[in-house]
Design a protein around this nucleic acid. Structure first.
Lengths: 132, 132
DNA sequence: TTACAGGCTCCAGTAGGTGGAGGGTCAAGG
DNA sequence: CCTTGACCCTCCACCTACTGGAGCCTGTAA
């Protein structure tokens, strides 16, 4: 299967798929014309990668997960541990974004948003020194 | 004031401050020894940048906010509009992270996390094709 | 004078791709 | 047989927002 079709099936862009080959995540064969020829195996891997990435796993996590996926003697504990670490990072990120959202929405509420220069948002950002 | 002291005051790293000069956010004077000499004005700007960045504004937003901050004839509506767009991005990001968290934590709950290879997390990632 | 802290520039690398130039290939229609 | 257009190829540069390090200069205290 050519890269374009694989792209359509996996939802990954052609560029991304080539990039994943560059960094060694997949190794498609090559036809006589130099075109990449993807076997079922690689198509599955790419779909796997697409889903893992959409869950926010890093490329490095993906590499490990893929290796576990292919290792029939894996322990599910190894997978779970990666997932748990990742979950923790996600939760931290959510917490920090929530904090930003909270501050920001308060500031927005307080700002008149009209033609006048007076602005609580800028006041907060400048640390409440005088606004020139 | 030398860059190290400014760094200590603003909480920005020395590297970051030099970088902000590179991209034209601040323009400190230079002493005869080539050292950067920061005036009050630049110190305020850097503090402003630090806070804006900590609220997640992009450097580009910061540039605009800084220009508004220095423009006494600004309309607070312009500031509010930037803040609103940013808030929306934050909320979108939170939503997508929440979705990840939800999926991921369900998968983690279902995974035994023991020595056996059977793993619902991998099963989900591979799209429920057979696990080899 | 000699450390040593602090400053300087410049180059490379990070994550995870995306965009574009410049060129080869394949299938269908005229 | 030729052309057109859709694919495919490689290679290089760029994106965000910094960070790390090499190699060198400067300022200060003992």
């Amino acid at each position: 299967m050519n890269i374009g079709d694989v792209s359509a099936h996996s939802g990954l862009s052609v560029k991304t798929i080539r990039y994943y080959e560059d960094i060694g995540l997949v190794s498609p064969l090559r036809g006589g014309n130099g075109y990449r020829a993807f076997r079922k195996n690689e198509q599955h891997k790419l779909a796997f990668l697409g889903r893992a990435r959409s869950l926010g796993f890093t490329i490095d996590d993906c590499r490990t997960l893929l290796a576990l996926y292919e290792d029939e003697t894996r322990a599910s504990a190894d997978v779970k541990s990666i997932a748990n670490e990742h979950l923790e990072k996600i939760e931290n990120k959510i917490a920090s974004l929530e904090a930003m959202r909270c501050t920001l929405s308060h500031l927005i509420d307080e700002c008149a948003g009209d033609h006048r220069p007076d602005c609580p948002i800028l006041k907060d950002l400048c640390g409440c020194q005088d606004l020139e």
